[in-house]
């Protein structure tokens, strides 16, 4: 996953343009980093990607739209079966997003609120600890990825993930192109020819859109959410005190899912 200098400068250039565009939630690159690249410092060494969800801005439609875009660009098929379901981002209510925060008298507005769920890109990921082939591993910038060409499909990572973030290809996802019923649900599968489809027997999950980050773009859900409601999802570098995520976490109260397990989840929920 190494990014060479030429590629890095390309990303840096593209991002600088974006930044000049004044998009305030964009803080993928700060000026100091171009300098870092000159000094041959590896990219990502001082980065820690995180997402902040402003739950006050969440609604069914917004999360649904994020899921549509995400699943579309990542060729995630709709298999029309809860048993075989593959999902990278989805929604649930307060009670099931934070089951250990169970509170009969929780404020009505929170009880009715919806929350987006996705891989927490844990700082201390149990999935990577248990994988017997290092097919799932953590990048220097904290993103947890899966090598779908190495995964043996033992599903130990699914047992280890306390967030239910991982999906398994119980069957061949490409069968949606042949099956008449499924074809109707997935008319344009694979929608994104630049992104691989998966094979049967491998695990997959949200990647914080690492392929978009590499091009200096924001994760697709963040971009989509902000088009609908500005500041609904905020993405950035926790290691940079000036970043938007740090700023918003400084100012507002946030919680994470199951922080008591010591996994260090990097998705924050502003309540």
């Amino acid at each position: 996953m190494a990014v060479d200098r030429r590629e890095f400068l390309k990303i840096a250039g593209a991002s600088a343009v974006l930044a000049l565009g004044g998009k305030e939630v964009v803080d993928i690159l700060v000026p100091g980093e171009v300098e870092a690249s000159m000094k041959d410092l590896p990219i990502g060494q001082e980065k820690r990607w995180a997402m902040v969800v402003d739950t006050t801005k969440m609604d069914d439609n917004l999360i649904k739209r994020c899921q549509e875009v995400c699943h579309h660009i990542h060729n995630v098929p709709d298999l029309d079966s809860p048993k075989e379901e593959i999902k990278w981002i989805w929604e649930d209510d307060y009670e099931h997003t934070f089951p250990e925060q169970e509170n009969e008298y929780v404020a009505e507005k929170i009880e009715k609120r919806v929350f987006p769920l996705l891989c927490n890109q844990c700082t201390n990921p149990p999935c990577c600890r248990v994988c017997p082939t290092q097919a799932t591993w953590q990048r220097e910038d904290g993103i947890v990825l899966i090598d779908e060409h190495r995964c043996i499909g033992c599903r130990f990572c699914m047992a280890a993930c306390p967030y239910g973030s991982r999906s398994f290809n119980w069957g061949d996802p490409r069968r949606v192109m042949e099956d008449d019923q499924l074809k109707k649900l997935n008319p344009d599968f694979p929608a994104n020819p630049d992104y691989p489809t998966r094979t049967k027997g491998v695990v997959e999950k949200c990647t914080f859109c690492e392929e978009r980050l590499a091009e200096g773009k924001l994760p697709a859900c963040v971009e989509t959410a902000n088009k609908i409601k500005k500041g609904a999802l905020i993405f950035g570098d926790l290691a940079d005190p000036q970043s938007e995520v740090r700023k918003v976490l400084r100012e507002r109260y946030s919680i994470r899912r199951k922080p008591e397990l010591g996994t260090g989840p990097n998705v924050y929920y502003i309540i």
Partner: peptide
């Protein structure tokens, strides 16, 4: 066909 022929799912993955 893959492990879809079993009763396992996303939630009960073993």
């Amino acid at each position: 066909e893959g492990l879809r022929i079993t009763g396992m799912s996303r939630d009960v993955s073993w």
